[in-house]
Design a protein around this nucleic acid. Sequence first.
DNA 1: AGCATTCTGTACCGAGCGGTACGTATCCGA
DNA 2: TCGGATACGTACCGCTCGGTACAGAATGCT
Lengths: 210, 210
Amino acid sequence: MPQRGRPRGFDVDEALERAVEVFWRQGYEGASVTDLTEAMGINKPSLYAAFGGKEELFRKAVARYAEKDMGYARDAFAQPTAYEVVATLLRENVIAVTRTDRPAGCLSIQGGTSCSTDNAPIAGFLAASRLGGEGALADRLARAVAEGDLPAHADPVALARFIMIVTEGQAVHAAAGVSREDLRQAAEIALAGFAAASGARLPEQATRPV
Amino acid sequence: MPQRGRPRGFDVDEALERAVEVFWRQGYEGASVTDLTEAMGINKPSLYAAFGGKEELFRKAVARYAEKDMGYARDAFAQPTAYEVVATLLRENVIAVTRTDRPAGCLSIQGGTSCSTDNAPIAGFLAASRLGGEGALADRLARAVAEGDLPAHADPVALARFIMIVTEGQAVHAAAGVSREDLRQAAEIALAGFAAASGARLPEQATRPV
DNA sequence: AGCATTCTGTACCGAGCGGTACGTATCCGA
DNA sequence: TCGGATACGTACCGCTCGGTACAGAATGCT
């Protein structure tokens, strides 16, 4: 039973993509349902039928954002060494928050760091999802310690926190209009700090015989 | 002519203080005029008479916040060496964004990183004021280069940007509920990164004979 | 005492909010 | 060809938004 009744007049994925951009630019509270439907090219009842409501749409938008716009994190985690994981993460983050074909910054922060009391769950949801990413990075760095890639005294949780703090700051900065090249400089400083604090082997040291 | 007509029934400064906290917790758009007047203990016409409107109140709240809650920045800039300037800034920022008698995070970010199109100027205003602080730090670090406190190859603008990115990330993290001690760890990693990237003399090196 | 001046509280404004009822259009299966 | 099912557009719901009109209350000045 592929479909019964009148078929949808719009592409759900494409509409969700537009919603991502509106939420990204204007935040959850700053994006009205009218703003959303206009950008999505649909009417309000279609939005409610297809997505359930503004809050559900937002959660789906965040999920899609994590899937598509933060895909670089998966690639970064797959790097062989902790240094390369972090270097990839920081550098790809700079690119992601300064794409010209996307709003500046990061949906996870632009979506709303603070909310009215009614919408407090939204800010909490975003904060939790950010901290989830931090936990994943900490796990990856812990693996690096277990593998001997990072020294035993390195603190994966603290290091992951530092990296995530930098990426969040980058996103805030990008939303303020700071250029990609300027953010890249900051990423390199952060990377140097990570290397110093973690005792990570640099790529040169890893590939070149000591 | 000290006062003519009926005297004010509330303390303007105290009311502004309450407004700061509401904006800080809920953001500009998330804070309704009713939320504000209830916290300030006044009625709407009093708010409009005393402060001019919601947006003017917000700008005054931000000014007061910068004066009182970011006063540590002035102290930090007065430190004798670049290393101590940055160390004080990072450490005091951690304390400021995790005060138990204040909302978590920083008004300059919680106030709103994104807004509805109508309120776009608010996000721009906050972004500009943050970048203003970054410029002041860059100036202070440039002075350190001129004084020989930082090596000639150090880039004050890039370093200031990195530090501000970290403090912004700390504020986002604090708003997510991360503890003061956890943020302090991150601040020390950032400080190490600053020292490495700038070539700053550490306090020990500065006081101890080489 | 009386008046101009200023502040206070109530009650209200038009507009926009998120969300929905309902009649119509368009599909599949029988 | 017709009925069940689904999606569509219009027009509307109650509510809250930021902001204000207005009348009464409290002061200083004369």
